[in-house]
Amino acid sequence: MTYKAILNGKTLKGETTTEAVDAATAEKVFKQYANDNGVDGEWTYDDATKTFTVTE
């Protein structure tokens, strides 16, 4: 399944996708990606669109 992350960081804005077996696995991948890029904020998840959003 393909999951998407939308990054609304102070220094990084954009989107990325990952293939994962479930939302929990995708969330770990996206949170690591955000952390590696200095983005730390509030996370939300929309199951209907399989989209995570982080906003700083």
Rank of each mutant, 00 (worst) to 15 (best):
E27T: 04
F30V: 01
T51H: 01
N37V: 14
T25P: 02
V29Q: 07
W43D: 01
K28A: 13
D47L: 07
A23H: 08
T44V: 11
G38V: 02
L7S: 02
T55V: 09
A48C: 09
I6R: 05
K50M: 10
E56F: 09
F52G: 00
E42W: 12
T44S: 12
E42S: 10
A20D: 03
K50Q: 09
E27M: 15
G38I: 05
V54E: 00
T16Q: 08
K28V: 09
T44H: 10
L12C: 15
V21G: 09
E19Q: 14
Y3A: 03
W43Q: 01
T2Y: 10
M1H: 14
D40A: 11
A26W: 01
K31M: 09
A5R: 00
I6T: 05
G9T: 15
N35T: 14
K13T: 09
D46H: 06
K13H: 11
A24R: 11
K13E: 05
E15A: 09
A26V: 01
F52A: 01
K10M: 11
E42H: 12
A48K: 12
A26M: 00
F30G: 00
Y45A: 01
M1W: 13
G9W: 07
T11E: 09
Y45V: 02
A23G: 04
Y3V: 03
T53L: 07
T2R: 12
G41T: 02
E27D: 04
E19A: 08
D47K: 09
A5Q: 02
A23F: 12
A5W: 12
T16K: 10
N8C: 14
V21L: 12
D40W: 14
M1P: 07
T25W: 07
K31E: 03
E27Q: 12
V54H: 04
A26C: 02
G14S: 12
N35S: 14
Y33P: 00
V54I: 13
G38D: 07
T55E: 06
T18S: 05
T11F: 14
G38R: 06
K50S: 05
N8K: 11
D22P: 01
N37L: 15
A48L: 12
F30A: 00
T44N: 08
N37W: 14
N8W: 12
V54Y: 08
D40T: 13
V39T: 03
M1R: 12
N35Y: 15
K50H: 11
V29D: 04
F30T: 00
E42A: 10
F52W: 07
T18I: 14
N8I: 14
D22H: 04
Q32R: 11
K31Y: 06
T51F: 02
D46W: 03
A34Q: 02
V54W: 12
D36L: 12
K10N: 10
E19I: 15
G9H: 06
F30Q: 00
W43L: 03
F52S: 00
G41I: 03
A20C: 08
K4Q: 05
D22M: 03
K31V: 06
T2G: 05
A5C: 15
V21Q: 12
K31D: 01
E19V: 15
T51M: 04
D40V: 14
T17D: 05
W43A: 01
T53G: 02
A20Y: 02
F52D: 00
V39S: 02
T11V: 11
Y3H: 03
N35L: 15
T44E: 11
V39F: 14
N8Q: 08
E27A: 11
V39N: 02
T53F: 12
D40N: 13
T25S: 13
T18R: 04
N8M: 12
T25K: 06
I6S: 04
A34F: 10
Y33W: 15
T11Q: 10
F52R: 00
V54N: 02
K28L: 12
Y45E: 02
K10L: 14
E19H: 13
A24L: 11
T51C: 04
T11N: 13
T55Y: 08
A26T: 01
N8S: 07
T17F: 14
Q32S: 09
V29L: 10
F30E: 00
E19S: 10
N37I: 14
K10D: 06
T55N: 10
Y33T: 03
E27G: 08
V21K: 13
L12K: 10
A5N: 03
Y33C: 10
G9Y: 06
E15M: 13
K28T: 10
D36T: 08
D46N: 10
T25R: 06
A23T: 08
T16N: 04
A23M: 12
A48G: 08
D22I: 01
T11C: 15
T53V: 08
T51I: 06
T55D: 06
L7H: 03
W43Y: 02
D47I: 09
Y33N: 02
V21E: 11
V29G: 03
T55R: 06
D47Y: 09
Q32T: 08
L7Q: 00
K13C: 14
D47W: 09
N35F: 15
F30R: 00
K10Q: 11
T49P: 00
G41N: 03
E56W: 13
D22T: 05
T44C: 09
A20K: 03
V39D: 01
K4L: 07
E15R: 07
Y3S: 03
V39R: 02
E56A: 08
N35G: 09
G41R: 02
T18E: 04
L12G: 07
A48I: 11
E19C: 14
W43F: 05
E42M: 12
Q32N: 07
L12A: 07
G38C: 08
F52C: 00
A24M: 12
K13Y: 12
D40S: 13
W43N: 01
A34V: 06
V29P: 01
D40C: 13
G9R: 03
D40R: 13
D36G: 05
M1G: 12
Y45L: 02
L7Y: 13
Y3F: 13
K31W: 07
G9F: 14
V39G: 03
G14R: 12
A20H: 03
A48D: 11
A5Y: 10
Y45N: 00
D22R: 02
T18P: 01
Y45S: 02
T49W: 04
Y45R: 00
K13L: 07
G38H: 09
K31F: 06
T53E: 05
K28S: 09
T18D: 02
D47Q: 10
A24Y: 10
T17S: 11
G38W: 08
L7K: 00
A24W: 10
A34T: 05
Y33R: 04
E15Y: 14
E19D: 11
T51V: 06
F30S: 00
A26N: 01
D36H: 07
D40F: 15
N35P: 00
E42K: 10
D36E: 13
G41F: 05
D22K: 01
K28D: 05
I6W: 04
T49C: 04
G14W: 15
A23Y: 13
K28P: 02
T25F: 08
N8T: 06
K10I: 14
M1S: 13
D40L: 12
K4N: 05
D36S: 10
V39K: 02
E15W: 14
W43S: 01
A34I: 05
G14F: 15
D22G: 03
T55C: 07
N37Y: 13
T18M: 09
V39E: 02
Y3K: 03
F52K: 00
A26D: 00
E56H: 06
V29C: 08
N8L: 13
Y3W: 06
Q32G: 06
D46C: 09
D46G: 00
W43E: 00
T11Y: 14
T2W: 13
T53D: 01
E15I: 13
D22E: 04
N35D: 10
T49N: 08
E27N: 05
T11I: 11
K10F: 12
V54Q: 02
T55W: 10
Y45C: 01
E56D: 07
D36Y: 08
A5L: 15
N35A: 15
D22Q: 03
E27K: 11
K10P: 09
Y33G: 00
V54A: 03
T18A: 08
T18K: 04
